[in-house]
Amino acid sequence: MKKTILLPHLLMGFYALLVAGSFHVGHRITMYMPPLVLTFVRFMLATLLFGCYVGLRYGLHPPSWRDMLRYLVISATLVGYFWALFASLRHTSALNTSMIYTLTPLYSTLFGLFFLGEKPSAGRVGWLVLAMLGALWVIAGGSSDRLLALSLNPWDFVFMAGCALMGLFSPLSKKLSRGEPTAVMTFRTLAAGSFLLFLLSWKELGSTDFTHWPPPLVWGLLYLVVCTTILTFFIVQYASLRMEVGKVMGYVYLTPVFALAIGLMLGHSFSMNVLPGVLVATLCTFFLQRS
């Protein structure tokens, strides 16, 4: 019983680590391919690879039109988030988007209340807010000046809407589940997302050179496809069926901490001023899960 309860938490901690690594990987490969095309290729390859596993394990059976609509709705939250991210990054800073992304667990908690009736306690909301503040402090590099200098433009509000869609992903996965295996749900969500991304990126696909893939792009795509598409989508959907969605996305606040640790291993330096934020984000995420 304890193992069953503990496993989703361990997986979500692993999720935060994988997402943190994607920031470093993504930064290195976006120069090789347009962002929307990169996202389509990422989804498509993940669909093909994970489809092999699902086919061997469960068999590939076409869903009904009603079921396909469920997967399209779930995947639309991810596609909308990625579109908002790439569109806003053309007009705003990575610092702004990183800080705005910390709203995602709050959105998940709100949608969990609205769609699932998961009413959070005042203590849980408090831990969530404190964890968010700790993560913001880490993202800002331990500088109050950088926090206070944050100014928002219209595209930042577009990304806020995108984060709301990402916050909706976990509650919708739980709400629209019909008892199918998590792997099957993940595969069909990826397939539906690939279809939607194709509709959005087909013009850019025609002008993209797919004949020359330098090694950094190949290895980077391999990481994004396996680690931060197949595994992360599976983990979130698996955990969402076994935990309250506010707690699931609360692990987002460990991502800046892991990103900092990975940066250190890569030889990057950081200000000691971030340590209070690391401590607050880590402890408050722990107490959030226990609340």
Rank of each mutant, 00 (worst) to 15 (best):
Met68Trp: 13
Leu11Asn: 04
Gly250Met: 03
Glu244His: 04
Tyr53Lys: 06
Gly246Trp: 00
Phe14Glu: 02
Ser64Pro: 08
Ala16Val: 03
Leu241Thr: 08
Tyr238Asn: 02
Leu197Tyr: 01
Val184Lys: 11
Ile230Met: 15
Leu264Arg: 09
Ile235Gln: 05
Pro120Arg: 00
Phe270Val: 14
Ser143Asp: 15
Ile139Tyr: 12
Val274Asp: 12
Phe286His: 06
Gly80His: 12
Leu136Gly: 10
Ala281Asp: 06
Pro62Asp: 04
Ser173Pro: 04
Ala149Tyr: 02
Ile100Ala: 06
Gln289Trp: 11
Gly55Val: 04
Val278Ile: 07
Leu113Gln: 11
Thr228Tyr: 02
Thr39Asp: 04
Pro256Ser: 09
Asp145Phe: 01
Leu72Ala: 14
Phe187Ile: 01
Gly167Asp: 10
Leu168Lys: 00
Leu231Pro: 12
Ser108Leu: 03
Leu241Cys: 07
Met1Ala: 14
Leu197Ser: 09
Lys3Arg: 13
Ser75Trp: 07
Trp137Gln: 05
Thr186Leu: 05
Thr282Tyr: 00
Leu110Asp: 02
Ser207Thr: 14
Met99Pro: 05
Pro105Val: 01
Gly112Leu: 08
Cys284His: 00
Ser207Lys: 11
Leu152Pro: 03
Thr285Trp: 00
Leu241Asn: 10
Tyr101Cys: 03
Trp202Ala: 03
Ala149Met: 08
Phe157Trp: 15
Glu118Gly: 01
Val236Thr: 09
Ser108Asp: 04
Pro214Ala: 08
Thr186His: 05
Leu36Gly: 07
Val25Asn: 07
Gly141Thr: 07
Ile235Ser: 07
Leu89Phe: 11
Leu150Thr: 13
Ser144Arg: 12
Leu172Cys: 02
Ala239His: 03
Trp65Ser: 14
Thr102Ala: 08
Leu275Cys: 07
